[in-house]
């Protein structure tokens, strides 16, 4: 089961804040230009935009896999640079666009993050917890002992999401998590994103799909490096 969020997350008005963040790719191209965004606990933002518009780069900056060329990003009021990178990355969980699995079983892939130094004090989930995390994402047919790299793209996409959710991050950055899914699994993953926000997490989800009608959420567009609220 997902762990409850610490009080500090709930108390903070803005869990995640980006102020005039710019990013220049190593080839010199300006990919993001003065992007500002604030996400509160429990907030779900649906981000779309043309390919190559900088959506993935934006998520990588928030997970600190890359460094902004300008501006500042804060988590819980503290600049990203003030966090230990492994601790930061566990709080700001990134689901990359292509689901990467290491050689080995599904079980190994689901629990590998609990073997790191940064996981000290955090109990590794048992097999029942792993099974539950998979079942909630419609992976009932996948054995824990199966070779993870041999699964279909859609299965790997959901497995990668299950792996991330097991860490209970405070912010979820989901980069096109439904791109390879059938309609049923797509609904399941979208409902999961909504439920995660309902538990107090801030969720930023990149998707080319139209958002589910029923849920209240912010709609953002990232075009040519500029971020704006849809309709604004």
């Amino acid at each position: 089961m997902p762990q409850p969020l610490p009080q500090e997350a709930v108390a903070s008005a803005a869990l995640l804040r980006l102020e005039e963040v710019s990013w220049r790719a190593p080839d010199g191209r300006l990919v993001l230009e003065e992007v500002s965004l604030s996400l509160a606990p429990g907030e779900l933002a649906w981000l779309r935009g043309p390919s190559g518009g900088g959506k993935s780069s934006l998520l990588r900056l928030i997970n600190r896999l890359a460094e902004p060329s300008g501006g500042i990003i804060t988590l819980l009021g503290k600049p990203l640079a003030a966090w230990e990178p492994p601790q930061l990355r566990r709080r700001v969980g990134l689901l990359a666009q292509s689901p990467v699995m290491l050689p080995g079983s599904v079980e190994h892939n689901l629990s590998l993050a609990f073997g790191f130094k940064a996981a000290q004090g955090q109990a590794a989930p048992d097999r029942a917890a792993l099974r539950g995390a998979m079942d909630r994402l419609g992976l009932q047919g996948v054995e824990l002992g199966a070779e993870a790299q041999g699964l279909s793209l859609g299965q790997r996409q959901r497995l990668a999401l299950a792996r991330l959710l097991l860490l209970s991050p405070q912010v979820l950055l989901l980069d096109e998590p439904v791109s390879a899914l059938d309609p049923e699994s797509k609904e399941l993953v979208e409902a999961t994103a909504v439920a995660q926000a309902g538990e107090g997490r801030a969720v930023l989800m990149v998707s080319h799909q139209p958002p589910p009608q029923a849920s209240a959420m912010r709609r953002l567009i990232l075009e040519q490096g500029h971020l704006r609220e849809e309709g604004a």
Partner: peptide, 16 residues
Amino acid sequence: RDQVELLLSLGADPRE
């Protein structure tokens, strides 16, 4: 590279 970045994004240090 993708595997290394995955591990970093899950909270591994460079050595791990």
